[in-house]
Amino acid sequence: MNKRQSRLFAVVSTALAAVAFLGMTVDSHRQFDALTNAKNITPAVAHGKDVWHKYNCVNCHTLFGEGAYYAPDLTKIAQHRGEAYLHAYMQDPSKFYDETRHRRLMPKQNLAENEITDLIAFLDWVSKVDNQGWPPRPILVTGASIPGTDLTTEQQATKAEQGGSQPPGARPVGSGQDPIALGQSLFRSVAPACAACHSVAPGVNMAGPSLAGVATRAQQHIGTPDYKGQAKDAAGYIRESIEHPSAYVVPGAMYSANGQSFMPATYAKELNSEQIDQLVAYLATLK
């Protein structure tokens, strides 16, 4: 190959690559509107994008996995957290996370009310963009439990000595007929997944409180004067909490505001009664 031929190679290969690239760019433009639900880009969403830029969010967080790696990815955050939660969070993140524990904290941004609302609208739009199903499994903000180790080995040993049963995470999920097993599977698979906010490991409080021992606590709550709900037993309490999350709220600014729980109140509609029965059956085993 002489110099003229090598120059020809450089020019032709660059030109071919550029033509192919531009062709796909044109075709992508034909599809962008459908893939991104462009019709849903309301003025609020557009303003929310400006808020996202104005506060330099992308230089700590990622969106579609792009940005900095100092804070959690927010691509699907609007599906993992309800609007009420996100609203309260953006007013003051320090109420939700402890810098001494996690070693980092989001500084309070002093956002105006409409900025918060529009930013949430933007994040909601982002969460619905058709992006080849990424991330392949939910990226959670917090949650310290590795699957199968919902109790530490030490705790499991203690339980075994006392003649206790296997911890929930170690119990086999097998029989298609077992409502408890089906409930446990629903716990991770309903939308939004219960497991996105609730751990079943003791002391692991995520966006929602840990459900370890929820059946025992339910029994105790029912008896107290604070409890204003209708439930008569632990199973009833759990069912009520799924269907009407605000009937009784666990104290804490990260769980509720003005007596309204941050937990989505959509399960009563989204799940059929059989599925709720299975979830209740599973959760009632967490004694």
Partner: peptide, 19 residues
């Protein structure tokens, strides 16, 4: 340029572009 121009695609995987 053969690889670089079309390699731009590796930034596009998960942002809402055609498959």
């Amino acid at each position: 340029f053969i690889a670089g121009i079309l390699g731009t695609a590796h930034h596009y995987y998960w942002v809402g572009v055609p498959h």
